[in-house]
Design a binder for these strands. Sequence first.
DNA 1: ATGTCAGCGACACGCTGA
Length: 265
Amino acid sequence: MRIATWNVNSVSARLPRLVDWLSTREPNVLCLQEIKCATESFPIDEVAELGYEVAAYGTGRWNGVAILSNIGLVDLQRGLHDEPGFQADDALVPATEPRAIGATCGPLRVWSVYVPNGREIGHAHYTYKLAWLRALGATVERELAADAPLSVLGDFNVAPTDGDVWDISQFTGYTHVTQDERDALHALDEAGVSEIYPRALKYEVPFTYWDYRGGAFPRNMGMRIDLVYGNAPFTGARSDAYVDREARKGKSPSDHAPVIVDLDL
DNA sequence: ATGTCAGCGACACGCTGA
């Protein structure tokens, strides 16, 4: 079985690449982030032609997550348990954003997650990010009550260690590498899941994101922020895991590359 | 290289978010 996660930075803008990628990599389950469309606007017909069912959760311009599966897609859950919302400057009340969707795909329980960016240290969005990660940990704890293989995959917007960015000295005072963020991420380990560390197909560290600007990809100025967590039944079934950096090449790529995990399941 | 993209409102391009 093959499962993957990919922040596509707009499923509409990436549709030709998504269709091509699905037909060549043939994952059984694909978690998407930043679909940037409403649930009802997801191009389900195009992926249905390739044999995939779709569970999407989006509201439009920003965020949005989805799960594609060709091995079944049931027991959907949109949003985390007790998920915090974000209060935009022009909003009267905090709004829940489409950042997490869970589903059961064959033998797997799967969550596709898009953790808030945080913007700047001390920003309200940064506080929201930390609270959101804690809510994810609490949701994972509840999900672990079942014994099925469980995986939580997506764009975590946190580099787990200093070695997971191209040059840690460039990140002083910035988000994604702070102790607070890493502590919040660690709540997942405490909840009972651990990370699958993928192979790099080139260079030392399997980066998953490279900024569009400044030729960051060819210069390998990347970050490893797209992560795959699982319980023991999931991680123990791993036969391979790697970052598909080929998908970051060429014309009109996403700024993220997919992470692929192969399982003996 | 202040170096890129994507979506939106509104139909030109500035704004927002990443």
